[in-house]
Deep mutational scan, measured.
Amino acid sequence: MQRVNMIMAESPGLITICLLGYLLSAECTVFLDHENANKILNRPKRYNSGKLEEFVQGNLERECMEEKCSFEEAREVFENTERTTEFWKQYVDGDQCESNPCLNGGSCKDDINSYECWCPFGFEGKNCELDVTCNIKNGRCEQFCKNSADNKVVCSCTEGYRLAENQKSCEPAVPFPCGRVSVSQTSKLTRAETVFPDVDYVNSTEAETILDNITQSTQSFNDFTRVVGGEDAKPGQFPWQVVLNGKVDAFCGGSIVNEKWIVTAAHCVETGVKITVVAGEHNIEETEHTEQKRNVIRIIPHHNYNAAINKYNHDIALLELDEPLVLNSYVTPICIADKEYTNIFLKFGSGYVSGWGRVFHKGRSALVLQYLRVPLVDRATCLRSTKFTIYNNMFCAGFHEGGRDSCQGDSGGPHVTEVEGTSFLTGIISWGEECAMKGKYGIYTKVSRYVNWIKEKTKLT
């Protein structure tokens, strides 16, 4: 034993070699072989497995989906700052455009905790909710729209109204504003409101030439003092309507412009014939205590009207009353817009006519005020429907199939267009061939041609 100890002390290297040989010859039971080890760690190889990531292109799944990435790591994937920024906006807080917040056709661009709407022409605001041009839906104005110097929408209202708090709607500024039905039992019968379409306001006024200088022999019209197929109006439903009495009662109609003036057809009036105007009328054979009678003290036909040349060209006249009318729910003026808007309103496509005229061709006159909704007829169809001249200051309205029309005794009465609950004068009943005849239409004086003249002559002093 002493000898062994001496050998170990003198030859430590020998001992180490012996131990190493023993270990190498022993069977290893701690580690699995290569094949079995792979069965336990069965993990798919990654895209760049075996390579240094710093030297390969980034992978979106590896960089940002398996674990949260930084902007720089995302930049490695896209290799483009702009594309990385677009991805980053949604990656950080989701897609803010998912709810489609942009209105009126706006395009949404996502941002971090926010979004941006790219608005089409005519709109602005956070969600493109603000109209900035009158060309689109009248700028959301209830009545009139004008573009300011910086191309912003400025709404306005006709006389007797003021802008509401929203700067879009119009509200009454006087007790009985024009064009409004205020009798409670008839307010439910107000005709369907007309909503502004998209309009090209630059070209809204037709490029028409008034044929002022045409000389033409007097034409022989049949029954051209021209509501057939209409309905009984309720008291106060058309408070701007008046009836004219002269040699015979209810020979023509008219509309209240203001307390002192009536507008009617020029062919209705004769110099030297006494005319009485009755406002607030409903049943011409009954006294309903809503009527107001006034005498006409002055007749002003349009300066281009000449019955000797043509009885229905420039067929418009103004009547001055001896005493002002007292405005109330049964006696209310009709609204008159400017030339541009009167023309736009007419193009809405349908209007209402009213009167006490004959209820059928050569038949009896109506006792109760009649009204009828009539569609506008395109000019080409209008011209083809008659052998008589249709001037540019006239328009056609009615039904091709016949059966409904204005008729004798309705002449001078109103053709009105309702705009968001307020009625505007767009025409004056003038003439036609018979009444409600198939293929024939009622012919009306186009008020847009005469609004400046009306307003100039009827100013209240």
Rank of each mutant, 00 (worst) to 15 (best):
Q2L: 15
Q2R: 15
V4Y: 06
M6H: 08
I7Q: 12
I7L: 10
A9H: 13
A9I: 08
E10Y: 04
S11A: 11
T16V: 08
T16F: 14
I17E: 02
C18W: 07
L19D: 02
L32P: 15
L32D: 14
L32S: 14
D33H: 10
E35K: 09
E35P: 12
E35S: 11
E35M: 09
N36Y: 04
N36V: 09
A37W: 04
R46Y: 11
N48E: 15
N48Q: 08
K51V: 12
K51F: 05
K51T: 13
L52S: 15
E53S: 10
E53H: 08
Q57P: 14
Q57H: 12
G58P: 15
G58A: 14
L60A: 14
L60F: 10
L60W: 07
M65G: 05
M65N: 07
E67H: 11
K68W: 11
C69S: 05
E72M: 10
E72A: 15
E76G: 15
V77D: 15
E79S: 14
E79K: 15
E82V: 09
R83D: 09
R83T: 15
Q90Y: 10
Q90A: 11
V92M: 13
D93G: 12
Q96P: 07
E98H: 09
P101A: 03
G106S: 03
K109R: 14
D111M: 08
N113W: 04
N113S: 05
C117H: 01
C119T: 01
C128R: 00
C128W: 00
L130S: 12
C134G: 02
S148D: 09
K152N: 13
K152W: 05
C155M: 01
C155E: 01
C155T: 00
C155F: 01
S156I: 04
G160F: 02
A164T: 09
E165L: 10
P172T: 06
A173W: 06
P175L: 08
P175H: 08
F176T: 07
G179L: 00
S184T: 06
S184F: 12
S184G: 07
V195L: 13
F196I: 14
F196Y: 14
V202C: 05
V202D: 07
N203C: 03
S204N: 06
A207R: 05
A207P: 14
L211K: 08
N213M: 08
N213W: 05
I214E: 13
Q216W: 10
S217C: 06
Q219Y: 06
Q219A: 14
S220M: 07
F221E: 11
V228C: 10
V228N: 05
V228P: 06
A233L: 06
F238P: 03
P239S: 03
P239N: 02
W240S: 00
Q241V: 10
Q241I: 11
L244P: 00
D249S: 13
F251P: 06
G254P: 01
S255Y: 02
I256E: 00
I256M: 03
V257Q: 00
V257W: 01
W261E: 00
I262M: 02
C268M: 00
G272W: 07
V273Y: 07
K274D: 15
I275M: 07
V277C: 03
G280F: 02
E288D: 10
H289L: 06
H289R: 06
R294A: 03
R298V: 03
H302V: 02
N304P: 02
Y305E: 01
N306Q: 08
N306K: 11
A308K: 08
I309E: 09
N313Y: 13
H314Q: 03
L318Q: 00
L319R: 00
L319F: 03
E320I: 00
L325K: 01
L327Q: 03
N328L: 01
S329Y: 06
Y330M: 08
I334A: 03
T342C: 03
I344G: 10
L346H: 04
F348M: 14
S354R: 07
S354I: 14
G355Q: 12
G355A: 13
R358T: 13
V359F: 12
S365T: 12
S365A: 13
S365R: 12
S365W: 07
L367H: 14
R373S: 10
P375T: 12
L376M: 12
D378M: 04
R379Q: 10
L383H: 14
L383Q: 15
Y391V: 05
Y391Q: 13
N393S: 14
G398V: 03
E401D: 13
R404K: 02
R404Q: 06
D405G: 12
S406P: 13
G409F: 10
G412T: 11
G413R: 03
P414D: 03
P414Q: 15
V416Y: 12
S423F: 14
S423I: 05
S423Q: 07
F424G: 01
T426G: 00
G432M: 05
C435S: 04
A436Q: 11
G439E: 07
K446Q: 05
V447S: 03
V451E: 03
N452R: 10
W453P: 00
I454C: 01
I454F: 01
K457I: 14
